[in-house]
């Protein structure tokens, strides 16, 4: 940030300012106009909006929804607004139209933190772990809002990702890429969320690790947690998806079950490489 009234003027003096990124999340101000076009357990309903107050719209009447215990996957070409759609559901986008509801309750006006309290958990694509904290401390921080005994949940997560138990005293930043993703998912699960939102969880991991991670995600969904996921690897993701959203230029292009989308010749040709 260099401009604005309180910009840095390009100063990068490490002896007086911490180069670490500050808070970037800006809670959405809400739309003020509730709309109700579709129904689901968690739904971003007819969302239109973009970043910042005067920024151009990135989403155009886009709807993303997921029901209890389901896996919903958002796929689409680069720049289609996949991650943006997910951020909008989590309250990090200026929506001008549409609403977000969970369990029927309108949460369009809530800040991201308040949505965590409502049972949503979000795993960002990058910097999604506390690198300087140990694995166990990462999990504890995930459960920060909980006042009850968290040991049971932690055991469940160690059961899901056994490698984390062995490494629980290690700094999370020292782990491999796949293990870090496990920590990230584990941290998000510690709040005992009803919906787990994953932004490209398999970006930059090897195919073997990716399969492993998808297996775990199915396991999580079986415990009744809804999964909303943005994926670059569309084919593999649709294979495990109950519901798939194909976005093009910020709008819904195709919406169907994962299986049906995989079978749709149009979708295959345009988005799955034949």
């Amino acid at each position: 940030m260099t401009g604005g009234d309180y910009g840095s003027r390009g100063n990068k003096d490490a002896s007086i300012t911490n180069p670490r990124e500050g808070a970037t999340l800006t809670p959405s101000p809400g739309t003020g106009k509730a709309s109700r076009k579709h129904e689901a357990y968690l739904i971003g309903d007819g969302m239109t909006g973009g970043y910042g107050r005067g920024g151009p719209d990135i989403l155009h009447d886009c709807t993303i929804a997921v029901n209890e215990g389901e896996i919903a996957v958002i796929v689409g070409p680069n720049g289609a607004g996949k991650s943006t759609a997910m951020k909008a559901v989590f309250g990090m986008l200026n929506l001008r139209e549409g609403s977000v509801r969970i369990g029927g309750e309108d949460i369009t006006q809530l800040s991201p933190q308040d949505r965590v309290a409502k049972g949503m958990a979000f795993v960002p694509q990058t910097s999604n772990i506390f690198t300087s904290l140990t694995v166990e401390e990462n999990l504890e921080m995930g459960a920060f809002l909980r006042r009850d005994d968290i040991r049971g949940t932690m055991e469940q997560i160690y059961g899901l990702f056994p490698i984390l138990k062995d490494k629980r005293r290690q700094a999370a930043g020292e782990l491999s890429g796949g293990q870090r993703q496990q920590v990230a998912v584990g941290r998000a699960l510690m709040t005992q969320p009803k919906v787990l939102m994953l932004d490209e969880p398999t970006a930059g991991v090897s195919p073997i690790v990716m399969d492993e991670l998808f297996d775990r995600i199915i396991e999580v969904a079986r415990t009744g947690i809804s999964i909303l996921m943005v994926e670059q690897n569309a084919r593999q993701a649709l294979e495990i998806a109950d519901k798939g959203y194909v976005l093009v230029q910020g709008a819904n292009a195709y919406t169907d079950t994962g299986e049906a989308l995989l079978a749709d010749p149009e979708v295959r040709r345009s988005f799955l490489g034949g």
Binding site: N11, K12, D13, A14, S15, I16, P19
Partner: peptide
């Protein structure tokens, strides 16, 4: 590698 002008 990075500026340390202020303290200097």
């Amino acid at each position: 590698r990075s500026d340390y002008l202020a303290i200097a």
